[in-house]
Write a protein that binds this DNA or RNA. Structure first.
Lengths: 142, 142
DNA sequence: ACAAAAATTAGAATTATTCCAATTATGGCT
DNA sequence: AGCCATAATTGGAATAATTCTAATTTTTGT
């Protein structure tokens, strides 16, 4: 697994921009998230990370994920009380959680729709972020 | 604190409908959620419940809340990794979380908007529920 | 009032995550 | 290239919300 130059640059810029250092671990975790673009938990990331980097610790995985979230290179995804998941898709999207298969699917959202959602806020409210989570049955399960 | 007859009937029907029993504890917790219509955590519910029912246990509070959620008399609300909160507002609404004050405000959603959100799902997907969480600054804090 | 089933209780267990203190790695500067 | 200050990693302990467990109590139907 290797991080493509464009993403390596993205990562380095993002880290530098917030006064943080580039490390093997951060790069490795970013790379594995980009490689398989699903929504793994920290434990799953830990398992994948150890395949190529057996000495990495779980604490570091948590630290790296936190850093990547802070620098806005990945997103956190939460469903109810389940373990937090991590998502490398940075486009504007919602998440669909299939109760049957457990799969999580990204649902693209138009600017227009997000705009409408912003407009329903009462006066004086300003949102930095809207989190939209569907749950039900996905196409494979219905 | 007393549960108004209309709500008592609602509770009893809902419980009966799912083969569960009416208990002092369930009634008490439902009543206190309806009395102060905010978004307390289980711990906060526990604290409020003990004011009038000092022997209630935390486990029971969790059990009752779970029962009320199952019977759809209240809703669960989750923000990131924070403790689950409980909401007696059953109308269609989203939640706004103010990062400044920590306050949670209900945002009413029109059928039309919810409809549009449903329409953006790809073919074959069907959602039972959409969870929408805004976060930013509320009117008091901006 | 009696028995069966369900709910409550207190405390132990679990699980995801964070904290801590010691070690190691990184990046800037000479 | 080597040194230093700072930041990151590490392993294990600690935390916090929630769930589980087994014993007791309550509820409901007869």
């Amino acid at each position: 697994m290797r991080l493509e130059p464009q993403y390596k640059k993205l990562l380095n810029n993002a880290l530098e921009g917030s006064g943080q250092r580039a490390t093997k671990q951060r790069e490795h975790i970013f790379a594995l998230l980009l490689e398989k673009r699903d929504h793994p938990t920290a434990d799953e990331v830990y398992a994948r990370a150890r395949a190529d980097m057996p000495t990495i610790s779980l604490a570091t995985v948590y630290n790296c994920l936190e850093t990547l979230v802070e620098t806005k290179l990945i997103r956190q995804v939460n469903f109810e009380r389940e373990p937090t998941r991590y998502c490398p898709n940075l486009t504007q999207h919602a998440h669909f959680y299939c109760r049957e298969s457990g799969e999580i699917v990204d649902i693209e959202l138009s600017d227009q729709l997000v705009d409408e959602l912003m407009k329903v806020l009462p006066k004086g409210f300003s949102a930095q972020h809207i989190d939209i989570a569907y749950d039900g049955k996905c196409n494979c399960c219905s």
